[in-house]
Design a protein around this nucleic acid. Structure first.
Lengths: 243, 243
DNA sequence: TCGATGACCAGATTTCAAGATTGGTCACAG
DNA sequence: CTGTGACCAATCTTGAAATCTGGTCATCGA
């Protein structure tokens, strides 16, 4: 029985390692060549497996490429959670948005998703739309805002829906301004992140700011919330991984 | 001599009237069919002139279509200036941005320009880039911000360049959120405008707000600035109109 | 005399069919 | 029972022929 379980465990580990090799290859090709030019054959070759093996892991090419993107999201999520663990002050809206901005921008696949980069991601930009993950993210964001409000870390002089819309629109602007605005008059990435944080803090956080005690009190709940999201995304990745 | 001038005047009026007919036709077709499908032949036919006549007014097809867009800009400019004249309070940053947002969104050609709508405008989206008009607009915006600062209508706790960037990025978000965000969770247009105004006021205007006196004092200068811009754009339109 | 015109042309765009590529399957090898 | 790559249908690419259209200019008529 123990042997059985151990053997299965080894199989699963090996299987996951292989999946990661395939995802590595897919990610590499996606970045190098863009959505259209990535072929399953080439991915298989670079991962040193047969093409059929790729289809043992994912139902379709799109599912494979989406998994590659998903893996980067997962990685970014982990980084954000670590950040909050390291310093709970990081959970303040403007700090978290600043960190998210930087973390997204330095991960090409995520940046491409957020900027709807057709060249790099093709129809993948709409692959997850309407999916369970997206619904989960929206719900989690809503909960995050609600908690911030409860602890005096977010203004309450605007109804939550409108506020969420305004916040989303504001952030969107900074994400998209990068390709849109002319290079000359654009500050460097960390200055952009600072400008975004500054704007968000002034527009959405109360004055005077809530004290550190509120932040510390909230930290465990927020971390739990984000870990729930991370776990959800991870499950999504595993499902893709075992059709 | 008087007769001469009168005759010339009549000619110019008739010429302009014809140019407007052509622009009407071009605008109509642009909205109906989009950039690619608009043909000079069809525009000429609808304006009841020969194709050659179109080329007596504009050097190229693109110049013609750009003029159609330019005319809408001009119209919008006039509307904004009128608004400030009617109520100087309208020159406050958040009020002006609100008005600009609504005025842009209800003019399809302008909205298309701002959202970089390739389907509707094709390469026209980059036609004016680097042109004198764009430079003028940037300069005028800079002057506007400087004046707001001088009169206590804009925060001064951020350096002007970064502030201009943040403001531009923030607005961009609201302009682009329209096509990007899912329809369900998007408020109607005037609620969007309100959310934008609310965000801008909180993020970029001082608390407490400057009094009405400052606004009244500034009004004439601002109106003059915007009229200079309008005149500049009008000149650009006339130049296109007489090659 | 001179502004207006539309036939005309070169170059750009579209069409369409033949050929090449590739996502996905499955019979078979190990 | 897992992994593979030959295989197939469907999609995509190619390129040449056909069509379309921006821009010109010889001509017309006021």
């Amino acid at each position: 029985m123990t042997a059985d379980r151990a053997e299965t465990r080894l199989d699963e580990d090996a299987r996951w390692a292989r999946a990661e090799r395939i995802l590595d290859a897919a990610t590499d090709l996606l970045l190098r060549w863009g959505y259209k030019r990535v072929t399953v054959d080439e991915v298989a070759k670079r991962a040193s497996v047969g093409k059929g093996t790729v289809y043992l892991h994912w139902k379709t090419r799109d599912a494979l490429l989406y998994a590659a993107v998903l893996r980067e999201w997962l990685e970014m999520f982990g980084a954000l959670i670590d950040g909050i663990r390291r310093d709970p002050e990081e959970l303040r809206l403007h700090r978290l948005i600043r960190a998210s901005f930087l973390a997204s921008m330095e991960r090409p696949l995520i940046r491409a998703t957020l900027t709807q980069d057709q060249e790099l991601l093709g129809r993948l930009t709409e692959y997850g739309a309407g999916g369970a993950l997206q619904a989960e993210q929206t719900a989690a964001r809503r909960e995050y805002y609600a908690m911030l409000r409860e602890h005096g870390l977010l203004r309450t002089d605007l109804d939550p829906d409108t506020q969420a819309y305004a916040l989303s629109a504001t952030s969107t602007g900074f994400y998209l301004a990068t390709p849109l605005v002319i290079a000359e008059q654009r500050p460097d990435l960390s200055a952009q992140a600072d400008a975004l944080a500054w704007t968000v803090r002034n527009a959405f956080e109360p004055v005077p700011p809530a004290g550190a005690a509120a932040v510390r009190a909230l930290a465990p709940t927020i971390i739990r919330l984000f870990e729930r999201q991370r776990a959800f995304a991870e499950r999504e990745l595993r499902v893709q991984h075992q059709p």
